[in-house]
């Protein structure tokens, strides 16, 4: 009896230790998500698919969806490639490499609102640093950047990439550090050049890291909101009106929680579809 009680306690311990974290996840992640789906399937207080019908018949929604997909098609691969290259660079065993790691990681430590304000000042159409630089050095006419419908989205991509790459770099760095150096030594003895080593050894061996970075980066990028809210408010000409911002507008500006929730449901489904394919693709060779 005493023995089984001790066994029970031993079994319960991990759950007890997990409880605080689980409680937070339940209250702040799972519950809002379920509530969001419930709200999305309501129309004027009753269960209905009408909110989705209204949403899907709105041109603005499809435009926002396209902006979100377009932005992520460029931003996520760009961030993954850059992070990996940065990790390769800072993985070199040279003197003072720690300083470089810190420098590359520095943008991560700056809060997004501060980064957004700095970038909007830097890329200001009125005597901003970037315009002064390209004007005086290359004689290029002042650019609109965040005020130009053709440039604003890519400026947000640049800002988010600058801010995010250092973070993902650290995961890749951990992945690279985990590769046994004897594998590289063996490759060297076999006469593999740097490119072959990279392609045939490094990239396959950090596949699990890549999968994690891909999934996490995709989720974060699809939910990107702060730069749009702080700098462009979805403009100019709705060119930066990503779905997350559209959901925010519906819920908190127009007071339509049901439409905001329905938009968020679409976002969640979009993330799930992308992540599913990412898992499929990366596990194919296994």
């Amino acid at each position: 009896m005493k023995q089984s009680s001790a066994k029970m306690k031993k079994r319960a311990l991990p759950y007890c230790l997990l409880l605080p974290a689980l409680a937070f996840v339940l209250v702040f992640k799972i519950y809002p998500l379920i509530y969001c789906f419930i709200q999305g399937f309501h129309y004027k207080g009753s269960w209905s698919l009408e909110t989705f019908r209204v949403l899907f018949s709105n041109k603005g929604f499809w435009h926002s969806l396209w902006v979100t997909i377009k932005m992520n098609l460029v931003m996520t691969p760009l961030q993954i490639v850059l992070s990996f290259l940065m990790a390769l660079l800072v993985n070199q065993a040279v003197r003072g490499i720690g300083a470089f790691r810190s420098l590359y990681y520095l943008p991560v430590t700056i809060s997004m609102p501060v980064a957004a304000i700095c970038w909007s000042l830097m890329l200001s159409v009125n005597n901003g640093l970037a315009n002064s630089f390209i004007g005086s050095w290359f004689g290029i006419a002042p650019q609109g950047f965040f005020t130009d419908a053709n440039q604003a989205l890519w400026c947000i991509v640049a800002l988010s990439t600058w801010k995010g790459c250092g973070y993902w770099m650290m995961f890749y760095l951990a992945g690279l550090k985990g590769i046994d150096t004897s594998v590289y030594e063996a490759a060297k003895i076999d006469g593999a050049n740097a490119l072959q080593t990279l392609w045939d050894i490094t990239i396959p061996l950090v596949k699990k890291t890549t999968l994690f970075v891909m999934v996490a980066d995709t989720s974060i990028n699809i939910l990107l909101f702060a730069p749009t809210q702080l700098i462009t408010s979805g403009g100019p000409s709705d060119s930066t009106n990503v779905l997350m911002y559209e959901a925010y507008k519906q819920a908190f500006k127009y007071g339509s929680y049901e439409k905001g929730a329905a938009t968020t449901c679409v976002l969640v489904v979009l993330i799930l579809i992308i992540v599913f394919f990412q898992f499929k693709l990366t596990n194919q060779e296994d």
Binding site: G144, T147, A149, P236, D238
Partner: peptide
């Protein structure tokens, strides 16, 4: 009014940024 105000504010800002008047 919230939707009205948000859409028109966006239009005025787009006009300021050089958007095509008819399209806006």
């Amino acid at each position: 009014f919230n939707e009205y105000s948000a859409a028109l504010s966006t239009m005025w800002e787009d006009i300021r940024n050089g958007a095509d008047i008819e399209e806006a």
